[in-house]
Design a protein around this nucleic acid. Structure first.
Lengths: 178, 178
DNA sequence: CTTTACGTTCAAAACGTTTTGAACGCAGGG
DNA sequence: CCCTGCGTTCAAAACGTTTTGAACGTAAAG
């Protein structure tokens, strides 16, 4: 194969590995995804392992993660009994999957904990000595800011996650905050 | 101190530690930030170490990171020769700092690499055999989608980072994508 | 029924990161 | 000057995560 194709493949796979790591996935997941993305044909576990020079076990586990995140899916290849995978090429869908489960859960947990804190502080207010009351008010101010932040995050996530799949990146021309 | 204040402090610090980890910082950074945020008075390195029950060395290093990210700053306390720190309480500013340096750099690197790939593929086009040309076209399609994604990310980041500090979370009522 | 080709699992090893604490340097006070 | 109190550094240790490969299960093929 021509050198330029190899070079592009390698840097794309490396870049997606880096990106995966950056957003909290394992690097191997990103590399597997990239390898599949740049392959017009489905790939088997063995082919993936060969390609990336990693063990079969690692491929098996990481592919399962990719499936759970909706980033790859199994396809049947006529006459083969191996498992074959293809990448989910709709990046927007991938992002919605990830934001929708992982990030939204995180934000919701945070909001719940903060809400509990507010409840607790208000309930305790009577029993506090003067100096403690001051501190409690201070806490409530800080917590209110954190809540605002997470509510903002929640809204932003909902906007992205809730957008229909018709929406594609080229159509995105404007983001307004105000 | 009243139990409720302790409880709230602890869960907030733990939550910020978790958040820090989630966004790719060390957990200790998040906990230090949280501890400072919930303290009306500046804290010294020793006080932070005591509070979080970690070594002085760790506090020293992590506080330097927090400073670099604009998440805490040193303040002078009259008559003391210790270093004292306070948290940057303006979360919006913190986010702008982080997105503006870390994430934007990441996106720019990605866009440059993708651009290089396109250049390389187009330059090589003539020298490719028929089957390779087909693959090259396939690569170009996939790369174009990745570029769209990163351009979108770039725009979103610019919108947030470029917003003036006057902007606060409560004022954010609407995000439009279309 | 046996063999073969595959995927999965999991314990051990490799690896990377974080934490610690002792050593050090530096400044200010005595 | 020489302490003393402080912050920083860094090598070693602790810890957590990832990778490997051998063992195992399973199902199709012979």
């Amino acid at each position: 194969m021509h050198e330029s194709l190899d070079a592009v493949n390698e840097s794309t796979v490396a870049g997606l590995g880096r990106l995966a790591r950056f957003v909290g996935f394992s690097e191997v997941m990103g590399r597997l995804y990239g390898t599949l993305l740049l392959n017009p044909e489905p790939l088997s576990l063995d082919e993936l392992a060969d390609n990336l020079e990693i063990s079969k076990g690692s491929v098996s586990m990481n592919m399962r993660s990719l499936e759970r995140w909706g980033m790859a899916k199994e396809v049947w290849v006529r006459g083969e009994r191996k498992k074959y995978y293809v990448a989910e090429a709709d990046l927007w869908k991938v992002i919605r999957n990830v934001l929708g489960s992982r990030e939204q859960r995180e934000v919701q947990v945070a909001l719940r904990v903060l809400g509990d804190s507010v409840t607790k502080l208000k309930a305790a207010e009577m029993q506090l000595e003067l100096e403690e009351q001051e501190l409690a008010r201070y806490y409530l101010e800080r917590i209110a800011e954190l809540q605002s932040f997470f509510q903002f995050a929640q809204m932003a996530l909902e906007t992205v996650v809730g957008s229909q799949e018709a929406l594609d990146f080229e159509a995105v021309t404007k983001i307004e905050i105000g």
